[in-house]
Design a protein around this nucleic acid. Structure first.
Lengths: 202, 202, 202, 202
DNA sequence: CGCTAACCGAGACGGTACGTCCCGTCTTTAC
DNA sequence: GTAAAGACGGGACGTACCGTCTCGGTTAGCG
């Protein structure tokens, strides 16, 4: 793959890159309804015909542009030496922050709309979220295994109960979930942390 | 006002009604991106020019059509003799069922997209959800007051943790929240119900 | 007829009159292309639906409005004691003046256009002009009979040669035929007036 | 310039040509009132949007289409060795025949109507006729100079008296001027042709 | 280091939907 | 009971993009 890509004309790679960027920016800015190849073209200075040369249509361009975001924040990114419960906290907090402000969050309404009617976008969207969720589920399971979290907790359900509120606030209300409330949410859903010696923690 | 409205030309009322219905159906079916006044016109047999006579543009029609859904399912609808916890269960279950299949749920992606860029739709959307959430918050608060729910639970946060998963499943994954899992979710978020002898709990 | 008209609702007669006036004014002002029932309605304050009650459509209204102009300037209007040649002069001069400025002249382009595609307007137009022309032809013939005009002149052709230039100037150039040139035109077409001794002519 | 024009996309030239033709045909057929870009599009198979790409609106298209008619029939076309009076006869006869049947004549009502309210059409119309008239005036003047025509004739006025009847017949009556009557008209307006010895005239 | 193949920009083209305006018909309301 | 008001279906307007296409002009990278 690396070889193959090395062979591609650098002009192509360059066009693809700037168009994808412009597409995301446009999507975040004007949404799906007013998203226009024309505007993308104007925004990045690549001719309309060139865009059509690389992507058959609007939706495919969007789907492809979104793929480039698929750089996970690193599953074990700063995993370091934290406890499983800390790991959960980290993931949820990261989610809350990402939903507060980021290109993905701004595109979210457009993505959801597009996903409802276009297979490629839908696949990207579901997989993207599935992978994020999986990390969370695993962290919770690890917490249970470590006795950090009560063992009658269903990790999958708990992950939903942790991620759901953040999504809800962003999409169904006028504001975002406050990252500082994350600890409170975790306590609510996973129960108070085991008292053993919480003060000795950090 | 009643008098005044009685005086309105019945044709107007009729046009408004069928167009609104068709608009919602169209929105649910093809989404916001392909929503077309032309299709709405074709679907309900009302001329395009008549539609424009009543609504200045596409988005205003959508916003207005959504308003007509604003008939709450009755806050104390079947309140009857149920316990507060039962009331919570009822509300969450109702939400889960509504999100499983209903015109509103089908329109949701379109609504979210439109809300991101159109004030009227946004206002409708936020208020609609706020009112549904408020009912849940109140039920939880009542449960706490009745000793039915632990008193360290924050009703607003708990309501999010209950509604969030349902929204999440619908919008971020390929399926819907199973209404049968509602009890499990409630137990997770609000804690096990106080059995005969709650002190024997854990 | 007088009886019949006496019976008609005075409001009807009033509506008909003001609408016809407004229609002519509108026609002269904006021409046939932009002539609009809506504007006529606005101009005279009579409701659109009322106009349609009296005239089936735009063209019929125009045709009818034009009919009301059919008040000939009086064939023997100021016939008085003038010579036949003077009578010719009078008629041609009258035509030149009418074409210089009058509501009919202003409507002329619209009439011609409408006449090309609508029988009623065409009939009105042709008859109107035929009757004006006939007066001229008769005056010329009278002049010939009186020895006032050379007898090898074809009255019909001469009438055309007299009226034609006036029409031409109005419709095909940027200005109108100067009424003061009428005498010159008559001399050209009908020959110099027989001076003292007509026998010296040819 | 020739080079530059050679570079223009042949598709453009092609579109322009067929649209102009269709526009004239449409104008002649249905007149100005019912002239529709849609019909022109249908008639020539060029898409409506393409037409709008080349002409901003209906009237501009009409004006431009008419310009293409501006190919004079050649002032000294078949001038050959004819006498000035023959030249006059030729021109008038040509006019009569053109007014009998030709695309221009069929468009005339529409042109006149449009000219009344649109500068471009008016300019075309007046210039077109001015140039035709000028040829006639010059021929008459030449005839006077050659002693072929009486020298008390005003060439401009005579030209009007010759062209006027033809225009009049076409626009104000139900038929056209018979080309065979042209000689008679010329004799009426310019006087009998000088017999054997023209020098004996006056 | 020059040739050739590919990409690029420009933009014409046939379409579709927009939102506007007016048509001519028809119904409802009010005087 | 008739006139005004105006809703209605319809159709053309001129605009904005769509996605397809054909052009020269440029540029990369192979020979």
């Amino acid at each position: 793959m690396t070889e193959a890509e090395d062979r591609t004309d650098p002009r192509i790679e360059r066009s693809r890159r700037v168009v994808r960027q412009a597409a995301l920016a446009e999507l975040a800015e004007v949404g799906y309804g007013r998203f226009t190849i024309e505007s993308v073209s104007a925004r990045c200075g690549v001719a309309r015909s060139t865009i059509y040369r690389h992507w058959p249509d609007k939706l495919t361009l969007i789907a492809d542009a979104l793929q480039t975001l698929n750089r996970q924040p690193g599953p074990a990114d700063a995993a370091g030496e934290t406890s499983p419960r800390q790991r959960v906290r980290q993931l949820v907090r990261h989610l809350a922050e990402a939903f507060r402000e980021s290109i993905v969050a701004d595109c979210l309404p457009a993505i959801i709309e597009a996903a409802a009617h276009h297979r490629d976008v839908r696949d990207f969207h579901h997989q993207y979220n599935a992978s994020r969720r999986r990390a969370l589920v695993e962290a919770i399971a690890a917490g249970i295994a470590a006795g950090d979290i009560a063992d009658d907790v269903d990790p999958a359900l708990a992950a939903l109960a942790l991620a759901g509120p953040i999504v809800y606030r962003r999409l169904m209300t006028g504001d975002s979930f406050d990252p500082n409330q994350v600890d409170q949410l975790i306590d609510l859903v996973l129960g108070e942390p085991p008292a053993r010696s919480p003060d000795t923690g950090c």
